[in-house]
Simulated assay, not measured.
Amino acid sequence: MSGSAREWEYPKYFLSYAHPRGSFQGDPWVAEFHADLNRALAERPSRPAGKVTGYLDGPGENDQLRRARRSEALARSKALVVLCSPEYFQDAECHNEWLAFHKRLSPDGSSDAAVITVLWERLWSSAPDGVALDEQDLRLQFGENGLRHQLAQRRAQYLVGVRSVAEAIVHAVEKIDLAPGAETGLSREPQPWPDHPAVRSLRILVLARTTGESLPPGCDPADYSELPELWQPYREEGARPLAELAAAVARDSNVHVRSVEDFERASRRAAGTVEDVELVPQLLLLDRWALQNDTMLRHLLGYNQQRRRPVAVMVPWVPRSDSIPRRSKQEIEQLRLLTWDTLNVALGQPTPGYEHLRGGIPDAATFAALVPVALRQARNAFIQLHALRSSTSQKGPQ
């Protein structure tokens, strides 16, 4: 028994979920679910098994101590509660937790009920080989978009889901004879389930004018460079190119940035081909002034025709009134309307809650704070697009 065993009670279940590793903050949604689940278990009539509590892995400890606690909890827990999400099947630590727990299950499968799967967020494709999930049943239990969506939007339905998970935990704790495992059973193998599409990735596209073009009134040449990727509309002390800032925030959110590209070059490369460019979530950083360029406007309007659309759009907007001639203020309003109309035609009406990403972002700090919102929008739209493609390919040609 490790020294830490004397400091905390063995948990009855282990909560396995994907979260940004190395973050100094835990996932508030998972923490709330964990608290609600323990509350639902505590409210049940007294049972011989006694109090049922669960282990929630989180940040705040050094790696060695955290690893020891995870190993001990996995070795002693009677049930593994899995919060299924697209990220879960791309997370090496989730993969290793799953393997460590499965090593304790009996060969005849009688203890399979000790693994309690929860649809936490909507999946965009089937689970990897070796993961037995009845996704239709999960959607019926936890809603099409998962329990996290229920927690955010439908509290009553969410609590029904919590109680069903609590019932499954009690069944595992009281009915299944699962012997403790080895505390060293937590593998160091870094490879998650193979051949499963990655959603924790991002392409950043930039549609901006360059100093090689004639800049219209209101464009400050100091904002621009010869490359759109170096567009720098915010010039606070220590400011950096917008795409570089977005990429840094994405990486801090445990997102792999596949590429940072000029939107126009990327769309030209994709035009006329039948193969998709790299199919991952995409973020477009849009310079409003670029829409006054007919060529760029056509590229943006045509990008959606073969479903290679950017799926999240951020529109930095700093109308420096001191540098804009009076006569152009009407043009500024026309440009604002052109931006909204163009995006609505090219990408569809904005999802409620994300309009401010298109409406104008006044400074670098606000931009950085909104990037995680854009990442969620990009991921959700990518999942929907992937589901639509999968459905179309399964139906075949009509």
Rank of each mutant, 00 (worst) to 15 (best):
N62Y: 08
G359Q: 15
A31I: 02
S77H: 05
R69F: 07
A75E: 02
W340Y: 12
V313E: 10
L133R: 10
P86T: 10
G272W: 02
G185C: 03
G218V: 03
D322L: 03
I324T: 01
Q157G: 01
K175Y: 02
C84R: 07
H196G: 03
S267M: 15
G54A: 05
G3C: 07
R389T: 05
V249W: 12
H102T: 08
E72T: 09
R155W: 01
A127W: 02
S393I: 04
D108L: 05
P194H: 13
E9C: 10
E135A: 12
E331S: 08
H149P: 00
R320T: 06
G60C: 06
I361T: 07
P310D: 11
L230F: 14
F24L: 14
R44T: 01
E275V: 05
A100W: 02
W193Q: 04
K51I: 03
T295F: 08
D108E: 04
V255Y: 09
V118Q: 01
L99W: 06
R21T: 05
S125E: 12
L123A: 05
L385Q: 14
D112N: 15
R154Y: 04
I176K: 02
P194C: 14
L65W: 11
R326V: 00
L207M: 15
G396Q: 08
S111H: 09
A127C: 07
L159D: 00
T117E: 12
R39M: 01
Y303Q: 11
D36N: 08
L80E: 07
P316R: 15
S390Y: 04
G143N: 06
